[in-house]
């Protein structure tokens, strides 16, 4: 079946019941999303579907025909990081980093739909995503910085998020 990931259409040869996470990592070699618990309880596998944050470990690809999937790879590149990535780099908001792609995608989904989300809203929204290193304060700081960077990026598209 066909999957739209980060703006490109991929022909995927997998059982329709396969969780999206496995297809992303094993078939498409997009390794940002991580396997954490496999139960939708830790958030490491979080990606965006049609602008909403979802657990890719619990989402069979048969649900995703014709829908837009976005992973951290779709937010920018190493040479030209998107505002969310830039903010995490600037705040050095990773310890082991395993939870970070999930954190970024959930934060991205929030700020895309609600650019002026309050600090409290950010905190509540990120609740489903766990960090075992205790990097929470830096992660929150990075998301708040991303909130500002995304606004700047929106005003000056050339330096901002790569359009994919």
């Amino acid at each position: 079946m066909k999957l739209n990931v980060n703006g490109s259409t991929h022909e995927v040869d997998a059982d329709p019941a396969t969780p999206l996470l496995y297809v992303l990592r094993n078939d498409l070699e997009l390794n940002a999303a991580k396997f954490g618990c496999g139960l939708g309880q830790c958030g490491a596998c979080t990606v965006m579907v049609d602008g909403k944050a979802i657990f890719s470990c619990l989402t069979p690809i048969l649900l995703l025909e014709g829908r837009e999937i976005k992973t951290v790879e779709g937010l920018g590149t190493i040479d030209s990081p998107g505002p969310m990535q830039q903010a995490f780099i600037e705040e050095q908001a990773a310890q082991c980093g395993y939870c970070i792609p999930g954190m970024m995608m959930r934060a991205q989904a929030l700020l895309q739909s609600k650019p002026d989300a309050s600090d409290a809203e950010i905190q509540v929204t990120l609740e489903p995503n766990l960090c075992r290193c205790g990097t929470h304060m830096r992660i929150l700081k990075a998301v708040k910085r991303a909130r500002e960077l995304m606004k700047t990026a929106a005003m000056a598209p050339a330096s901002g998020e790569r359009k994919v």
């Binding site: 329709p16 019941a17 396969t18 969780p19 496999g38 139960l39 939708g40 619990l58 989402t59 069979p60 048969l62 649900l63």
Partner: peptide, 10 residues
Amino acid sequence: AIYQAACAVC
């Protein structure tokens, strides 16, 4: 298929 992928794990 939805049940097996999304629900059965728990």
